[in-house]
C-alpha cells in the first residue's frame, strides 16, 4: 500500500537529523511491501484534506522556527482536520512546540501555535540537554521504552488531564519537573526527543506506520512481522545507558 507523508517545512525545520526519521519510516515500510511517498509542504502551500496519512514536522533553530510559526498558524484548521480525520502525526522538538497553543519568549512575545496538543511552552533560562529514557504505553499493557536526546530551552506545560507521550525515567522531559515527556492526542505524537528518534526506537516507527496504514485503509492498524532489529537494539541500549548514567532530573 502507498503511504503518503506530508513533511512540513523541510527546508526550515531539519536540524536534529529529521531525515533519519524519514529514512527509517521509508525503509521499514518498504521491508513490509509498502511504499512511502514523502511530499514537502512548504510555506504558503495548503495541506489538502485527506491526502496525507502521516504529517511530520521537525525541529529548527529559534530563527527558523519563528520564520515558519506564522505560516503554520495559518494552516491551523488544516492540521486539526487532518488529525481529526485519523492521520498520524509526529512532531519533534520545535515542531512539537509549534503544534501546542503558543510559545512565549522571555520578553513576553508569543509565537502562535496550532493547538493540536493541549499545552504551551515558555522559554527558560537554562537549556535542558542530554540523553533521555522514557517509559511509554501507547497500547494498553504494552510497556515500551524510548531512548533519545533532548536539547531545548522551552518549558512545556501540559494542560490539566492532557496525556504525555511517556514518563521520564532519566532526563528532563517537558519541563524538568513534572516527570512527563511529550504529548499524545490519538494518533498524534509530540516529543522533544531526537537522536534521531526512530532509528533506535524502531517499534515506534512501526507504530506510526501502522496508524498511517489505518488512515489509508480506513480499517484497523495492521500488525507487522518482526524484522531483524539487532543493531537497533544495540543502539537503543547504548543510548539508554547514557541516560541512566546521567541520572534523574
Amino acid at each position: 500500500m502507498k503511504i503518503v507523508v506530508g513533511h512540513l517545512y523541510p527546508e526550515y525545520l531539519n536540524i536534529y537529523a529529521d531525515r533519519g526519521n524519514i529514512a527509517v519510516l521509508a525503509r521499514r515500510a518498504a521491508w513490509r511491501g509498502h511504499e512511502l511517498e514523502v511530499r514537502p509542504i512548504s510555506a504558503g502551500a495548503a495541506i489538502e484534506p485527506g491526502v496525507h496519512d502521516l504529517l511530520y514536522i521537525g525541529g529548527g533553530q529559534d530563527r527558523e522556527q519563528a520564520l515558519v510559526a506564522h505560516d503554520l498558524a495559518g494552516k491551523r484548521d488544516q492540521v486539526l482536520a487532518a488529525a481529526a480525520g485519523g492521520a498520524a502525526v509526529l512532531a519533534v522538538c520545535g515542531g512539537y512546540q509549534l503544534l501546542g497553543r503558543f510559545y512565549r519568549f522571555a520578553d513576553g512575545e508569543e509565537l502562535p501555535g496550532v493547538g493540536l496538543f493541549p499545552l504551551h511552552t515558555i522559554a527558560g533560562e537554562r537549556r535542558m540537554i542530554g540523553d533521555v529514557l522514557l517509559e511509554v504505553e501507547l497500547e494498553p499493557d504494552e510497556r515500551r521504552t524510548i531512548a533519545g536526546f533532548e536539547n531545548h530551552a522551552g518549558r512545556t506545560k501540559l494542560d490539566e488531564g492532557a496525556e504525555p507521550l511517556g514518563r521520564v525515567v532519566a532526563g528532563f522531559g517537558n519541563d524538568g519537573e513534572s516527570g512527563a515527556e511529550g504529548c499524545r492526542v490519538g494518533r498524534a505524537l509530540g516529543t522533544y526527543l531526537h537522536g534521531p528518534l526512530l532509528p533506535r526506537n524502531p517499534w515506534l516507527a512501526d507504530w506510526l506506520l501502522a496508524q498511517a496504514l489505518a488512515h489509508r485503509s480506513g480499517g484497523e492498524p495492521p500488525s507487522f512481522a518482526e524484522l531483524d532489529d539487532g543493531l537497533e537494539r544495540e543502539a537503543h541500549a547504548v543510548s539508554a545507558r547514557r541516560a541512566r548514567a546521567r541520572g534523574g532530573r
Binding site: N14, Y16, A17, R19, G20, A23, I129, G130, D131, F149, N151, H194, G195, P196, P199, R242
Partner: peptide, 9 residues
C-alpha cells in the same frame, strides 16, 4: 558532541 544525531545530516 554528546548528541550524535549529526551523523544523520
Amino acid at each position: 558532541g554528546k548528541d550524535v544525531s549529526w551523523i544523520w545530516d
